[in-house]
Write a protein that binds this DNA or RNA. Structure first.
Lengths: 218, 218
DNA sequence: ATTTTATCAGTAAAAAAATATTGATTGGAG
DNA sequence: CTCCAATCAATATTTTTTTACTGATAAAAT
């Protein structure tokens, strides 16, 4: 497979979730029109997206083999490699992530947490030990971790980010709603909860204006 | 302003975060090349994006006025309307969202939570009351809420979603890693934490293969 | 066995987005 | 006051992505 289009890559998780669900229902095959309908996409687009990842192809009248498809998607999304991450900021959100079961399904693992609060340093959350923030420099290289998750307060985020970078982290998943300045070779993914919700709301509003709400209650 | 391109809309939050940060530092103007550099975008693209939302424009040698820009972005993203949402599933993640301070900055508010666990029904989390799941039907219409947040276990997600739809919800923010089937007029936004992390990891791996890691430690 | 229908794959066309180019405008330097 | 460098705006070009079309294939129906 040569380079997959960016937009396609962004749709892949949707395909994966949907198809995974089908598998659990015991279904063995699925056609692109069927996928397209459920995911509100174009039938041809679905076929092309799938072709870009799977190269085995589907059969007329039968569609694609679900098992095959999932394998291809997993491989393409890199779910089949184990990957470790560390988390900084064991507050409410940090704890939620530490407790979150879903990661393992996708081969991801948060192996340790860091915080400055003396009260929680040394405790365990969902089996993961909480270390003092300063031990980042020491532990990250030793554990060969390359992904850092930032769930600290806005005001500390840049400082924590700098520390992570110094510790050899290469990718950052940032939950603080601030812009992080990083060296060029560092990958940053911003997860701004508030923005996500606001954007959803914005979309809803647009939809309501363009007028396809059923009942008269707005 | 006529219809803003989808891709532009997706970049808007990044601009907003970055520029907001500048404002807090007391800076008054910013040029598109400067923004482009920081956000790793094309200078012209930034200018076009900003033109699509602001229509006031910038001045040569000075760039854009930050206050003006923020107003336009806020308006465009709908941050200036108060919007209410309800949350179903007061588990670890649900509680994290209920506690999350960031929403109010963007005019969003979670006004109530729902759960089936007798132990937490009736309690308050961060000032929000937890109601029994069945009262959704009653409360949602009364509160005129149109956004529902799903933070329940995978197996319950579809059921909860159906209930929300029945209660008059129009948009769903789904944190369960499953595909939700909904009527056409319902907007679904999937937030799959595990996938997000996996995708970040995937990107990192690609970057490492294409070979621009500085030190020899991989 | 032949026809029908659903579906796939590959190519072509259209649309959308990103990038490059050119000329205009403005604040400051000489 | 004139020139220069920075930056904007508008138009043009290229690239990417989406959609449309055509013919092929295979299961099911006649």
């Amino acid at each position: 497979m040569d380079t997959i289009p960016k937009q396609t890559l962004m749709r892949l998780p949707n395909y994966y979730n949907f198809i995974k669900g089908l598998q659990n229902s015991g279904i063995r095959n699925i056609s692109s029109p069927a996928i397209a309908k459920e995911l509100n996409l174009n039938e041809v687009q679905v076929r092309k997206d799938l072709a870009a990842v799977s190269q085995i192809g589907g059969k007329p009248k039968m569609g694609f083999d679900i098992g095959e498809l999932l394998n291809s998607l997993e491989h393409c999304l890199g779910y089949d490699n184990v990957n470790d991450a560390v988390l900084v900021g064991a507050g409410q959100l940090g704890r939620a992530l530490l407790t979150y079961k879903g990661f393992e399904t996708y081969g991801m693992r948060i192996i340790a947490a860091f915080d400055t609060d003396e009260g929680i340093i040394g405790t365990e959350i969902s089996g993961k030990r909480v270390f003092p923030a300063d031990s980042l420099f020491d532990l990250c290289p030793r554990l060969k971790v390359h992904i850092g998750i930032i769930t600290v307060q806005d005001s500390c985020a840049q400082g924590v980010c700098d520390k992570l970078v110094k510790s050899g982290i290469l990718a950052v998943w940032n939950f603080a709603p601030v812009h992080l300045t990083v060296p060029d070779h560092i990958l940053v993914r911003n997860e701004n909860m508030a923005v996500s919700l606001a954007v959803l709301s914005k979309h809803l509003k647009e939809k309501m204006i363009s007028g396809d709400v059923p009942e008269g209650e707005v």
